[in-house]
Amino acid sequence: MLVARDLVKSFGGVRAVDGVSFTIERGTITGLIGPNGAGKTTLFNCLAGLFPPTSGTLTLDGTRIDGLSSDRIFRAGLARTFQIPRPFPEMTVLENVMLAPTSQHGERFWAPWLTPGRVAREEATLREKARHWIAFVGLEPLVEAPARVLSGGQRKLLELARVLVAEPKLVLLDEPGAGVNPRLLDEIVATIAKLNAGGVTFLVIEHNMDLVMSLCRPVMVMAQGRLLAEGDAESVQADPRVIEAYLGGAIA
């Protein structure tokens, strides 16, 4: 589904992503792990178009997407959440979610003046859809609350609902489990599994090994900008190169 070839991102002399190639199969939950500073989030930002890769190619279902801006990549079906969630604080949870679907007729400035009926009908449909996803992630009681009152974990759930309402093909999750209390974490894991069963493909950055082991297959390991290993969770964990990357050279 998503194919990366020789992806490089350098900042000045630093190659934060250094020749990464991989393929993400449809219907999988691929884990991306690695020590801090390995380049995982930078890789995510390249994939999602926050900045273009320095070199290399990216194809989503056969279409080149490298170098496209983040809005076009989202419209192509690749959505992402942020490591530190970025809800729109002065908008309600419902508005946050209703924003995301692409090609809304009412987003043309003349539409509310010239075709208010059509906009209202679209909004009604959209509201139902948004409510469905808000309920799906368990934020129903907070539908009309401004997003700024949400806790860290709830913000992650909101971001999840916000991308899901747009029905992306592939979702990049940047540390969905970080800073989330254990009960909420179980909810998030269950949510991802449920969605995956419904056909959504995921690429997940995560440090929480329990989450990775229970959810992700395959797992990719990054260190110092390179892809070290790829395979199922057990074999990756046993790989001496992975242990070395995490714990330093002495052990291996």
Binding site: S70, A79, M91
Partner: peptide
Amino acid sequence: SPFGRVLRAIREDETAAQSLGKR
């Protein structure tokens, strides 16, 4: 309208709005 919703989202966090498909 949805147009205004996008404007407010851009005001709140332009990067996030852009990453949700809004130019």
